[in-house]
Design a binder for these strands. Structure first.
Length: 571
RNA sequence: GGGCCUGUAGCUCAACGGUUAGAGCAGAGCGCUCAUAACGCUUUGGUUGGGGGUUCAAAUCCCUCCGGGCCUACCA
């Protein structure tokens, strides 16, 4: 039994996330957490909402609410949807928590003491009409390079040229439309990542088993241009964690807050404190402090590729730079993007399926299965309704659902609602058990390696083996000539359902519960040990019931309807 | 512009220098009748994006061209 700390990239607060966000971090993290718990390991699985920054302030303003109130509401909404998808966080925290305030300020103080913070005076666009400094991309104007009239201040979407806001012709605020913009001086804190470049690079180099996607992005940032750049960690905003040096004021930084990308990863740690505060645990330091028991913790982070630089460089720089014995990540599992039907998901255009909508039309397990079995591991992947319908109908309804249905209904009709006695497992059963034992070992190896698609593929093959066995053993024929033989076949088949439920639970937890509940309220839920005993847990006389069909097929008419509904509006 | 990833059967993907490039779906044929017209077996289908090179041996390594994607540090 090992101890596993698992975190999912924390979703931003300003709205409901789409399926691409889900499959890139929270869902595979949940798969891994459920699997490890199933195998008897001790797991702490944490996630939170990322609540600071300009977009949160603007979203709150648009909703006509104080930002504090808006975030509290959106956190509740996201927590509710997470529950709907059966994301089994031990705690779903908030980056705006008091714990994170204290800890973020603490880290800043430590970094300052270590001479890893420098103050930089710079000039930024200020909009008097909006009453705020504007991040580059909140300024638009005509591109001096190609003449595109909606070029953003950081880059022109038309000709892809990188820009500076002052380059724009007729610049205006995208918030208010105001053209009254001025350059103002402001002072900010920079994290001296460049001073830690060699340390960070050596650390990345030591991670030879990480996905290429993870290490290549990290190396790019380490070596691109002049190498790893120092990074601003403060902003001129109202909503955020006030800049303080530990418990002390930070002269000259009054009214400023830390940048979200500084405080968001720290929330991983603060979240464990929230977990204790919420009465769900009693010792967070044994998960996070290597001097207090976290030495043997295996820490895995899940995230989309856009998050990789902050997790491979920024956050480690914070942790290492603190000089304190915090736990560093052991493995970073990163994902590419999921596209929607030939294009990108688009919040603004309402294009694609968002988490709340997904749960409105189908139960979580349908989505979990498709998303995980098509996880964008090696390249960007694409959601299409045709593929979704085909996969769900075939894999879930036909292969697994129908297997459970045919076994339980046959058993009931011939032997009644209890595991039948009589006969014994013979060569066919031994062959199947040997095959499954091997396949389960393969499945576990893929899950251990977080090879999500391969795990799904092997799990499906395990389901298929049940159907193959039934076809070969043909209990319906045996029943006529040798009822004891049929009884043995049915006994094994019912045991298969129990084993399948346990193996499948990380992917489709609700369905797994339904399958297990067919055998009463307290069936043995222990993970298979890899011996033939795994298939004799259900004994003659044990009661079972026939569950409702596990999965309904998606009809062509439904598919067409949804296709239409989620296509979004063209601009 | 630069960097990284990617291109394999109609579709979604494996194969990571070593038999004859494999699976699932879709298509075709056969079988079964327990089951959600479900399941099983067999089978069609590929000059591995094009071209060149290295090697006894290349989907795999190198060069080049073409296509797709991502990142490029003030959105998060």
């Amino acid at each position: 039994m090992a101890r596993h700390l698992i975190t999912s990239a924390i979703p931003y607060i300003n709205g409901i996330k789409h399926l691409g966000n889900l499959v890139g971090s929270q869902l595979p993290a949940d798969l891994y957490a459920r699997y490890l718990r199933g195998r008897g390991h001790e797991v702490l699985f944490l996630c939170a909402t990322d609540e600071h920054g300009t977009p949160a302030e603007l979203a709150a303003a648009k909703a006509g609410k104080p930002v504090r109130e808006y975030c509290a509401e959106m956190h509740a909404v996201q927590a509710d949807i997470a529950r709907g998808f059966r994301l089994s966080f031990d705690h779903f925290g908030r980056s705006s928590s008091p714990q994170n305030h204290r800890l973020t300020q603490h880290f800043a103080g430590r970094l300052a003491d270590a001479d890893l913070i420098r103050e930089v005076t710079e000039r930024q666009m200020y909009s008097p009409a909006d009453g705020r400094f504007l991040p580059d991309r909140y300024i638009e104007g005509t591109c001096p390079n190609c003449g595109f009239d909606s070029a953003r201040g950081d880059q022109c979407d038309n000709c892809t040229k990188q820009l500076d806001p002052v380059d724009l012709i007729n610049p205006h605020s995208t918030i208010s439309g105001s053209t009254d913009l001025e350059m103002r001086e402001t002072k900010h804190l920079y994290l001296r990542q460049s001073a830690m470049k060699d340390q960070l690079e050596a650390w990345i180099d030591s991670k030879t088993d990480w996905p290429v996607l993870t290490t290549s992005i990290a190396r790019k940032w380490l070596n691109d241009g002049d190498g790893l750049q120092d990074r601003g960690i403060t902003r001129d905003l109202d909503w955020g964690i006030p800049v303080r040096k530990g418990d002390a004021d930070w002269p000259g930084m009054e009214g400023k807050v830390f940048y979200v990308w500084f405080d968001a990863p720290i929330e991983y740690i603060a979240c464990a404190q929230e977990w204790v505060e919420a009465g769900k645990g009693d010792d967070w330091e044994r998960w996070w402090r290597t001097d207090k028991g976290a030495d043997d913790v295996s820490y895995t982070q899940f995230m989309g590729k856009d998050n990789v630089p902050f997790h491979t460089l920024g956050f480690p720089a914070t942790i290492i730079g603190s000089g304190e014995p915090w736990k560093l990540v052991d493995f970073i599992k990163s994902f590419n993007y999921l596209n929607y039907d030939g294009g990108q998901f688009s919040t603004s255009r309402g294009r694609g399926v968002f988490m709340d909508q997904a749960l409105d039309i189908l139960p979580a397990d349908y989505w979990r299965w498709w998303l995980l079995s098509h996880a964008p591991e090696s390249s960007d992947a694409e959601f299409t309704w045709e593929n979704f319908q085909a996969s769900v109908n075939k894999d879930l309804a036909d292969v697994l659902g129908n297997f459970v249905s045919r076994v339980t209904k046959f058993a009931r009709s011939r032997f009644g609602e209890a595991v039948p006695d009589g006969g014994a497992y013979g060569p066919q059963e031994e062959t199947l058990i040997a095959d499954l034992t091997k396949r389960i070992a393969t499945y576990q190896a893929h899950m251990d390696a977080m090879e999500v698609r391969k795990s799904a593929q092997e799990l499906r093959a395990i389901w298929v083996a049940g159907n193959e066995y039934l076809q070969t053993a043909a209990p319906w024929a045996a029943f006529k000539s040798d009822p004891d033989r049929a009884a043995a076949i049915v006994r094994l088949s019912l045991n298969l359902i129990r084993v399948y439920a346990i193996l499948s639970a990380p992917f489709i937890p609700d369905t797994a519960d339904t399958m297990l509940n067919a055998f009463g309220s307290a069936p043995d839920r222990r993970w298979p040990r890899g011996t033939p005993d795994d298939f004799t847990v259900l004994q003659p006389g044990d009661a079972f019931s026939v569950p409702e069909n596990l999965f309904a097929k998606i009809e062509d008419s439904q598919r067409a309807d949804w296709q239409e509904r989620f296509a979004g509006t063209r601009i």
